[in-house]
Design a protein around this nucleic acid. Structure first.
Lengths: 229, 229
DNA sequence: CGAATAGTGTCTGTTAGACATTATCGA
DNA sequence: TCGATAATGTCTAACAGACACTATTCG
């Protein structure tokens, strides 16, 4: 086991950046500026820079900032993909992360970014298709028993809006009474006193925001947020 | 972003091999034969060998076979650990896996292996302590709603034995009636017709085995295996 | 037969979902 | 006042845990 064996492995990070658009879970893809797959749509990604990155998550955050301008979204390690065939440059390892951003934060830079629904994506280069599938599965799974989808909402939002986000992610309707019981149980939201969503021809909804201490962490439930009706 | 940036990263795999011993969840540690940390107890691990490994999980299985003789236990990716400080040889990436084996399969080679309870471990080299903690958390979490602990049982086992395994992993007693209902719901076991556990001064228990199609996969529950009495 | 544990039937408190009712806005 | 949706009260069915009872072995 000599040292040279470690040297020929290419080390990169890729980020599956997810958002909600038109009631659908979407992924942000960028047009690749360099080979391989120059010009193709792919996940934002890049080499680890050992001289500046303290960690792979650092590299993922740097890549995300450089390529999309997003500063500090919810970012979590997904899985690591590896093998001789996934990158034409050689045996490679890519540590994949997923990030969630509210739709509003994306508006700013629409440079070469495409926001596409995760269902019915075109074939993606490398194994980015598998990465997206893994990220979607992870987000769906975690959304069943945690506050994860809150990170797809803007800073201030109503409970009906949040329920619609959960329903879009899970792909099925949720019972309103159960949903509200579970959100209360999660205990991650605080109402903004006196702030109501105005302007519609019905009773205005209370606005909430995520409690600051949950900006980077999740709250979990034992029994899961029920689906159906 | 030139190609040289990928070259200085060391790529390894490590395996958190877990088993049950004396009613406690234990990890298998080996005495390191080479520097760094020569002579210290650490997780089985090693470099990725790009010329022979088709994937990181291949590398993990190879390392496990080479160092412990275990052929094909339940093996799953855990997380990837990285950074400049975790390995004194330089900026490194280690893709960590966890494996579960029944106690019986370990007996064969007790060469330089130590089986230690996961609670109260000594300080481990690299970030192996964090890896063990992450693996234990993952196994506890998955055991709440899946058939994962079955892989800690021998090939033939009784339901009371399986319940004891769940209780050891989760660290709390489980209601017998609920547990049996849940195991039936999981639908991963089949009784061995006519085979009972003999030799004790009570009613003999039915022997079961894992259905072959679940050798490498898990069955999940929506509501979780209840804990408490 | 008695001790011990396997395995099952059944009761009850808790929880999730269905439904109904009230509240509050704009038009 | 009406239409629409928010927010909440309440009923019911499903489920988990508690308890008790039967089954089957050894000594």
């Amino acid at each position: 086991m000599n040292r040279s064996e470690g040297i020929s492995v290419i080390c990169t990070v890729d980020v599956v950046l997810l958002t909600l658009h038109g009631g659908q879970l979407c992924v942000v893809l960028l047009k690749r500026e360099r080979p391989p797959f120059q010009g193709a749509l792919a996940l934002p990604g890049g080499y680890i820079h050992p001289e500046q990155d303290q960690d792979a998550v650092d590299a993922a955050a740097r890549v995300l900032l450089d390529k999309t301008g997003l500063a500090s979204p919810y970012l979590e390690q997904l899985a690591t993909f590896s093998g001789p065939g996934r990158d034409p440059r050689g045996w490679s390892v890519s540590i994949a992360y997923y990030a969630l951003v509210p739709q509003e934060l994306l508006r700013r830079d629409t440079t070469a970014a495409q926001v596409l629904p995760v269902e019915g994506l075109p074939v993606l280069p490398f194994d980015h298709g598998r990465m997206v599938a893994a990220a979607v599965a992870r987000v769906r799974s975690k959304s069943q028993y945690s506050s994860l989808p809150v990170h797809l909402c803007p800073e201030r939002f109503t409970l009906p809006q949040l329920q619609a986000v959960y329903e879009a992610v899970l792909g099925e309707p949720i019972n309103k009474v159960s949903f509200r019981r579970k959100v209360e149980e999660l205990d991650v939201l605080e109402p903004l006193p006196g702030e109501l969503e105005q302007g519609r021809a019905n009773r205005p909804a209370q606005l909430y925001r995520l409690r600051p201490q949950y900006r980077r962490s999740l709250s979990l439930l034992e029994r899961g947020i029920g689906a159906r009706s």
